[in-house]
């Protein structure tokens, strides 16, 4: 009897392990950010792009929703999402867009905005990329949608797509 229990438990353990492997086959083994949704961003401190002041969490609390967009003039995919950002800025009054210029030269950044249009309500500058770590950024373009309480609603890795655009629109208009 006791032997049978041992045998049964060994066999169920094996089935369990193989089952986990089987499900694991269809999971991605690349980093994702789903764990960060729902977290509050603390300690926000960003240098303003042109003015001599610091943007803090208090500034962002004034907006119903903020989309923090990390971009640079040297980043090709950033050009792709630019049109989406312009459209969001035009259509959504409930949403402010904060652009963070990432590891960029000031002149190049200005030229970029002059050529393609400026979708940002405010621009900050992160010359060495250090502040981006505080936002959990690991490659640009990346954007974070937060609400009034600085809680992360969603993170967008890579350029904002049409689907992302619709998602943001839906969230912002629900309010």
């Amino acid at each position: 009897m006791q032997k049978n229990i041992i045998k049964l438990s060994i066999i169920s353990l094996i089935i369990f392990i193989i089952g986990v492997f089987f499900i694991g086959l269809n999971k991605s083994s690349i980093y994702d950010t789903k764990d960060l949704v729902g977290q509050k961003i603390t300690n926000i401190q960003l240098d303003h792009f042109s003015e001599n002041r610091i943007i803090t969490g208090e500034d962002l609390k004034k907006n119903n929703f903020t989309l923090i967009n990390f971009w640079a003039s040297w980043c090709a995919p950033c050009r792709d999402e630019h049109a989406m950002l312009l459209k969001l800025n035009n259509d959504e009054k409930n949403l402010k867009i904060l652009g963070v210029n990432f590891k960029d030269k000031k002149n190049n950044a200005l030229k970029f905005l002059k050529d393609l249009g400026d979708p940002y309500d405010d621009i900050a500058r992160d010359e060495f990329g250090k502040y981006s770590i505080n936002f959990g950024i690991y490659g640009i373009p990346e954007s974070i949608l937060i609400n009034k309480d600085l809680i992360i609603i969603k993170k967008f890795i890579g350029p904002i797509s049409k689907d992302d655009y619709n998602f943001i629109k839906q969230i912002v208009r629900k309010q």
Partner: peptide, 10 residues
């Protein structure tokens, strides 16, 4: 990588 360099700085 770009990411690793930034992390090192921080």
């Amino acid at each position: 990588s770009e990411f690793a360099q930034t992390i090192k700085l921080v």
